[in-house]
């Protein structure tokens, strides 16, 4: 029988999760080890975001368990099929996040807070892919960056890298 834990989101929703799934988060793992998690584990994450986090963790958990059960025979073929499945799942997951950027950024912050390096790295790459083709003004808006260059300074830097502004 798997050990279950109850996670409480910031808007007081309860999520029942297997220990193995949630221990991917270093933050929660530490809370469990410290004995701080006897009842519900309160988290500073909204229910909408937490649901996404758990979706990711369950997928990862699934992958690890299957690999443990593999025997060596025919592993390569199986691995390749699994890789395809994971890729397909990740693509779907990314598409959903791209469509709702608020969820994406909340998830980014949550993965940092919960210490989920694999998810954090995945999301950073997703954001990088989304912003790679954008112009500086859009990036300033998106990341709340204040332009502290004088117009002359900005012009000089832009002119030096004129080719980078071409498609």
């Amino acid at each position: 029988m798997a050990i279950m834990y109850a996670l409480k989101s910031s808007d007081n929703e309860i999520f029942e999760v297997e220990q193995k799934v949630i221990e991917q988060s270093e933050t929660i793992k530490k809370m469990i080890e410290d004995g701080a998690a006897t009842g519900e584990i309160p988290l500073q994450v909204s229910s909408k975001t937490l649901a996404k986090v758990l979706e990711w963790c369950k997928q990862r958990q699934h992958k690890t368990v299957e690999n443990e059960n593999d025997d060596n025979k025919g592993k390569r073929k199986k691995e390749r099929d699994e890789d395809d499945d994971i890729k397909e799942w990740e693509n779907k997951f990314s598409d959903e996040l791209k469509a709702d950027k608020d969820v994406l950024f909340d998830l980014l912050l949550a993965s940092n807070y919960l210490d989920l390096p694999a998810l954090l790295s995945f999301l950073c790459q997703l954001v990088a892919d989304m912003v790679a083709g954008k112009m500086p003004e859009e990036i300033r808006r998106m990341f709340n960056i204040e332009n502290d260059f004088t117009p002359e300074e900005e012009k000089a830097i832009t002119a030096e890298h004129g080719w980078a502004f071409q498609p």
């Binding site: 940092n112 950073c124 954001v127 912003v131 500086p136 990341f143 204040e146 980078a164």
Partner: peptide, 25 residues
């Protein structure tokens, strides 16, 4: 977005984007 996450995102950008983003601030 915490600075270390911003750095992480930027470290995954293509060089061309980074050359374009030098004028951000």
């Amino acid at each position: 977005i915490p600075w270390e996450i911003t750095v992480d995102i930027f470290s995954k950008l293509p060089v061309k984007s980074l050359c374009r983003f030098k004028c951000l601030s």
